[in-house]
Design a protein around this nucleic acid. Sequence first.
DNA 1: TCATATCCGGAACTCGTGTTCCGAATACCT
DNA 2: AGGTATTCGGAACACGAGTTCCGGATATGA
Lengths: 187, 187
Amino acid sequence: MSVRADAQRNHDKILEAAEEVFALEGVTAPIDLVAERAGVGIGTLYRHFPTKESLFEAIVSTRLSSLLESADAFTSELDPAIALDAFLREFARQAAEKQDLFEALGQAGIDVKSKFSGLVDDLFARVDTLRERAVVAGTIRPDVDTNDIINLVVGTCHAAGHTGADDEGLQRLVSIVIAGLQPVMPR
Amino acid sequence: MSVRADAQRNHDKILEAAEEVFALEGVTAPIDLVAERAGVGIGTLYRHFPTKESLFEAIVSTRLSSLLESADAFTSELDPAIALDAFLREFARQAAEKQDLFEALGQAGIDVKSKFSGLVDDLFARVDTLRERAVVAGTIRPDVDTNDIINLVVGTCHAAGHTGADDEGLQRLVSIVIAGLQPVMPR
DNA sequence: TCATATCCGGAACTCGTGTTCCGAATACCT
DNA sequence: AGGTATTCGGAACACGAGTTCCGGATATGA
């Protein structure tokens, strides 16, 4: 027998509600809010996701996958000279929109690395590809590594998130970071 | 009658212990750790600081004052062309060393602004002075405001802090941010 | 030394949040 | 429609962290 129809419905409703709640309130949001928003009891929530962490994992995986797609799209469709720039801006946009993502990425890196090691490694590899191409194209300094780049963007999103900056403000900050990544012109 | 000698001793021990604990573990450290480290009972701690927040406030005030002194020193002693640079690096160093500080600055800006409004405003003013001078000296773009600068450095510290970067790594990130703040050279 | 005002210490209380458990409800198969 | 395995729902439990409270200890002045 397949899963019962109502179970499937609730599973989806919970995921949807959790995405909204976590994006809005961050990872620290009480799990009750998710259940309430999903129109479901706490017990039901725990039937589908035996742990808050498991629920969180499901969502972060989605988010990371979405980022991976963006990275691939930019890599194949955009001029290498601007692809990294475009991706970092998209990354910042998504991270700012969903507070939970960059919280997860920004906090204890151990958890993230162990739980989503595959996806994180993938993302890291894509960014590294974008970086290498940009270096070849001459729009990025060769002496910064991918780790630095990601840290800078994540940190920027964190700061912007907690000061209620809008998307324009965030993009302004990202612009400064990107400017700092460019090769220095001999004066 | 003045305060009893043991009371004064404990007050100091608690402050000292709290500084160490908060710097090491961040604001979320249980208050019991502070008491234990101070060699003091929980009751004693609460006698001196009626609230965890009050203890935290005492420490952050100290940290902010220290930063103000640095800003003043750099303003009066250094070439305006490099003073902001030097201060931002010192700021990052202090923030990274004491996780609590930038956590407070990075989190709900509302609390910080309301509780330490005086000190934060002062700090903001000093940085603005440094920035203005650097703009005049031509080492900083005129189109970024002080808020952006502080956000970038705080965010960078946050990211670096959670990835276990050493001082060298942090300074590398700050260097990139500072590079992004410099005027663009026409190519 | 003695009295006492002050301080110390930690057990206990509160509160918020994650998790478990089981009687009630119900979708699915026959 | 009826039987039953599966799911639902939320009351109750677990647990950690902040805070309170008060009996015991002690510094201080006479």
